[in-house]
Design a protein around this nucleic acid. Sequence first.
DNA 1: ATGGTTGGATAGTGCCGGTATCCGAGAAGG
DNA 2: CCTTCTCGGATACCGGCACTATCCAACCAT
Lengths: 214, 214
Amino acid sequence: MRLAELSRHSGVSVATIKYYLREGLLMPGRQINATTAEYDEEHLRRLRLVRAMIQIGRLPVATVREVLGHVDDDSLPRTIRLGAALWALPQVPEPDEDDEYVQAAHQEVDALLDRLGWENAKRLATISPAYRSLVVAVAAFRRLGYGWGAEQLVPYAELMHRTAVLDLDLMETHPSQAEQTEFAVLGAILNEPAMRALHRLAQEEESSRRYGFE
Amino acid sequence: MRLAELSRHSGVSVATIKYYLREGLLMPGRQINATTAEYDEEHLRRLRLVRAMIQIGRLPVATVREVLGHVDDDSLPRTIRLGAALWALPQVPEPDEDDEYVQAAHQEVDALLDRLGWENAKRLATISPAYRSLVVAVAAFRRLGYGWGAEQLVPYAELMHRTAVLDLDLMETHPSQAEQTEFAVLGAILNEPAMRALHRLAQEEESSRRYGFE
DNA sequence: ATGGTTGGATAGTGCCGGTATCCGAGAAGG
DNA sequence: CCTTCTCGGATACCGGCACTATCCAACCAT
């Protein structure tokens, strides 16, 4: 497969593929001679993955590169690789630790983790971007005057835990570890838009059940 | 409160506030004289809301303007207002209806809605952006060779429905309709990052329960 | 041989949040 | 009253990012 064919099969323009090659998102093709390179199914697959991450997952190019780096790195044990890939995902800006709302949010989130019994997550709290994101979101809510704390979050957290159980069950249906890692990353990146969509659909459904269409 | 004070109270730079005023994200202050305008708590609140939507929700400025327009529009009935605000949220690119994966995804999603008994959502299918987003995400998964369809999505959808029930219950605890609408929009915009964070935390928790830390 | 492709390098584009600069009109202090 | 500081508003500009257009030499098909 040559560049133009890769472009046709993927629906991605030649110029864009060249850009991804330059950015290291796509491994170079096998060079046949000075002006021809050969690409295969693996390239096509990777290209589709990259596109999905960028277009559906809205990841910045630099993040895609980082995530792919972890996915490709065979030297790390599974959970590290998975965690590394997931932690590269886009983050909310750093919380300002001096802010009173941020401090209150910290306490709320810690209380939440205690009430849930998420001991492991608590151990990861200081380094996990997810923890920080949650703190930032809770702080924003409270700044706007909503009593958004452990009380309200517990039922959500329990639902999300059940979702995570589904995620990992689904991941374990894949035979090889490489596939599992790719699927887990995909799950985190592509599943989330799908879940967001499902969530909104569910809101529309429930809302029209309660209030009708008018 | 003058511009500089508004800036100090909100932590947003004067230049940025001016930008938001220009863009119509913030209503102009009460003009005292040719060079002074007076802002109040309402402005501060709106400014915090705008910041949260942009920074935490990552909404583009144009979308924020649109969402706020619907929130402020008292002439519409609640569900329309709510729906209009939610539908303005950022969307995935339009699916290419000729694509075979997209067509298969359509069928899967329709089958999913049937199995869930989401009659109302089905009626909204042709116009709901959430429906389209779901189709796009499912198509992307299938293009990558994963059997991602009604079968796998049903348990997720049920969890999301329970989440939506929580959302609306929580919304109904607010007394006025204006507050309810704002809260619903906030829920859709700010709650999602929080849920995403909870989801990742839950994944970390469950993953380390299953596989330990190594 | 020759005209159309090919891959690679480089520079440019369009958008978008946000900044910097400038200005004339008050406000504040003596 | 006069000077100096600060204010709000208009305008031009900036930097990052995801692409895209152009150019060029090498190659392949006729």
